[in-house]
Amino acid sequence: MAQNRFQSGHGPSQRQLRVGELIRRTLSDVLLRGDVHDPELNRHSITVGEVRTSPDLKVATAFVLPLGGHGADEALAALRRNSAELRHLVAKAMTLKYAPQLRFVLDETFDRMDDTRRLLNEDRVRRDVEHDDTDDGADDE
């Protein structure tokens, strides 16, 4: 049974999820307080949507998005430029054996949600859904 946990296709462990959420909250607090000594980074209001950690907890990938999605490239560049200082600040607030290397990626979750909403509002999709709903009702009789 223990071997199945390490095979591909399985999600993260409870420890990875717990540490990822702790890093997310800590990183959000650091960015909110403006603890980093970079005026360009502090100019952005950045949301940390999720943090995923590697199985050994040595690498943490933070999915980030600046407020309103404006200036995403500049904010991402500023985060990457200050990753060593951010790593130090996050590690100082946590009690992990190793300070995880921080990687930053733009969070595209909201874009995907908008695309899905837009798709579901198309006439042909609504027509198909309504058609399926009427078919389901006929089977009940």
Rank of each mutant, 00 (worst) to 15 (best):
M1A: 12
M1D: 11
M1C: 06
R5F: 12
F6P: 00
Q7H: 03
S13G: 02
Q14D: 10
Q16C: 10
L17M: 11
R18V: 10
R18G: 00
V19P: 08
V19W: 07
R24S: 02
R25V: 04
L27Q: 11
L27Y: 01
L31F: 14
L32Q: 14
R33M: 07
D35N: 09
V36F: 11
H37A: 15
D38S: 08
D38E: 07
P39F: 12
E40L: 10
E40T: 04
N42M: 03
S45P: 06
S45D: 11
I46M: 08
T47L: 08
V48I: 10
G49V: 07
A60S: 06
F63H: 08
V64I: 11
V64K: 06
P66I: 00
L67E: 14
L67W: 14
G68F: 06
G69Y: 08
G69Q: 05
H70F: 05
G71T: 02
A72E: 13
E74V: 05
A75H: 01
L76R: 01
L76K: 01
A77K: 13
A77V: 07
L79I: 00
R80G: 02
R81A: 11
R81V: 01
N82Q: 15
A84W: 12
E85G: 09
E85W: 12
L86A: 11
R87L: 05
V90A: 10
A91E: 02
M94H: 08
Y98G: 10
A99Q: 09
P100D: 05
Q101L: 11
L106H: 07
L106E: 05
L106A: 09
F110A: 12
M113K: 13
D115A: 14
R117A: 11
R118V: 01
L119V: 09
L120R: 05
L120T: 06
L120W: 00
N121S: 11
E122C: 01
E122P: 01
D123R: 13
V125L: 08
R126N: 14
R126Y: 05
R127N: 15
H131M: 12
H131W: 08
D132I: 10
T134S: 11
D135N: 10
D136F: 09
A138T: 12
D140R: 13
E141I: 10
E141L: 12
